[in-house]
Lab assay of single mutants.
Amino acid sequence: TTQFTVHSPEQAEQWKEYAKQKGLEVHVQKKNGTWHVTIH
């Protein structure tokens, strides 16, 4: 599991796309103005 924080919805979307291409599961949670992205 990879977990990191991004600071814009655009970055979060890019990671979603990346994960989809790799066939991975991605979870994005918005918290205090940042987005926590978890890739399984």
Rank of each mutant, 00 (worst) to 15 (best):
E10R: 07
E17H: 08
F4T: 03
V37M: 03
P9E: 15
E13W: 09
S8W: 05
V28M: 04
Q21W: 10
Q3L: 07
T2W: 15
V28W: 04
K30C: 13
E10C: 09
T1G: 09
S8C: 07
Q29R: 11
I39L: 10
T2H: 14
T5Y: 13
L24T: 02
S8E: 04
K22T: 07
I39Y: 02
V6A: 05
F4Q: 02
K30H: 14
V6L: 05
Q3K: 12
G23N: 06
V37R: 00
Q21T: 09
E25V: 13
W15S: 01
E13M: 10
L24W: 14
Y18E: 02
K31H: 11
V6H: 02
W35M: 02
G33H: 06
Q3F: 11
F4I: 10
H36T: 14
Q3Y: 14
K22Y: 13
E13G: 04
Q11S: 08
Q14G: 07
H40T: 12
T1L: 13
T5I: 14
I39V: 05
K20M: 11
G33P: 01
I39T: 01
H7R: 08
G23Q: 05
Q29I: 14
W35L: 04
V26P: 01
G23V: 02
Q21K: 12
T38P: 00
Q14K: 13
Q11Y: 05
V37N: 01
K20S: 07
E25P: 05
Q14R: 13
E13P: 01
Y18Q: 02
T34R: 11
E25G: 07
A19K: 01
I39E: 01
N32A: 06
S8D: 06
L24I: 06
E10Q: 09
Q11E: 15
Q29V: 15
V37L: 05
H27Q: 09
G33T: 04
H36I: 15
S8H: 05
V37E: 00
K20R: 13
T34W: 10
I39N: 00
V26K: 00
H27I: 12
Q3I: 11
T34H: 11
K22P: 03
W15F: 05
V28Q: 01
A12K: 02
K16A: 10
V28H: 01
K20F: 09
G23E: 04
W15L: 08
Q14F: 15
Q21S: 13
W15R: 00
P9H: 15
Q11R: 07
V28C: 00
E17V: 09
H36F: 14
T38M: 07
W15T: 01
H7W: 10
T2C: 15
V26H: 03
T38E: 05
Q3E: 12
L24H: 04
G23D: 04
S8T: 13
T1Y: 14
T38F: 08
L24F: 11
G23F: 04
T38V: 09
V26L: 06
E25D: 09
W15P: 00
W35H: 02
K20N: 08
W15K: 01
T34F: 13
F4D: 01
V26F: 12
V37C: 00
A19N: 01
Q11P: 02
K22L: 14
F4H: 04
V37Y: 02
T5F: 12
G33L: 05
H40Y: 15
P9S: 14
Q21E: 10
E13L: 09
K22F: 13
H40F: 15
W15Q: 01
T38H: 04
A19F: 11
E17D: 08
K30P: 06
H36A: 07
H27M: 09
F4V: 07
K16E: 08
G23H: 05
H7N: 13
T1F: 14
T5V: 14
V37S: 00
W35Q: 00
T38Y: 08
W15C: 08
G33V: 02
Q29L: 12
G23R: 04
Y18W: 15
Q11D: 10
T5P: 04
Q3M: 11
F4P: 02
Q14A: 14
H7E: 12
E25C: 14
Y18C: 08
H27N: 08
Q29M: 11
T34P: 01
Q3V: 12
K16D: 03
T5N: 06
H27K: 08
E17S: 09
N32E: 08
N32P: 03
P9T: 09
Q29E: 14
K30V: 13
T1A: 10
A12S: 03
V6C: 05
K20I: 10
K16W: 08
H40C: 12
F4M: 05
N32I: 03
E17M: 11
S8M: 04
Q29H: 11
A19G: 13
K22Q: 11
A12R: 02
G23S: 04
S8Y: 06
V6M: 03
K20P: 01
H36C: 13
E17K: 10
T2A: 10
K30I: 13
V28K: 01
K20W: 07
T1P: 10
N32R: 06
L24R: 04
F4S: 02
K16Q: 09
Y18A: 03
A19M: 05
P9A: 15
A12C: 06
V37K: 01
S8Q: 04
H7F: 12
G33W: 04
A19V: 03
E25K: 12
T1S: 10
K30S: 08
T38L: 07
S8R: 04
E25R: 13
Q11T: 06
N32S: 05
V37W: 02
L24V: 06
T1E: 08
A12M: 07
T1V: 14
A19L: 06
K30E: 15
H27T: 14
H40R: 11
L24N: 02
Q3N: 08
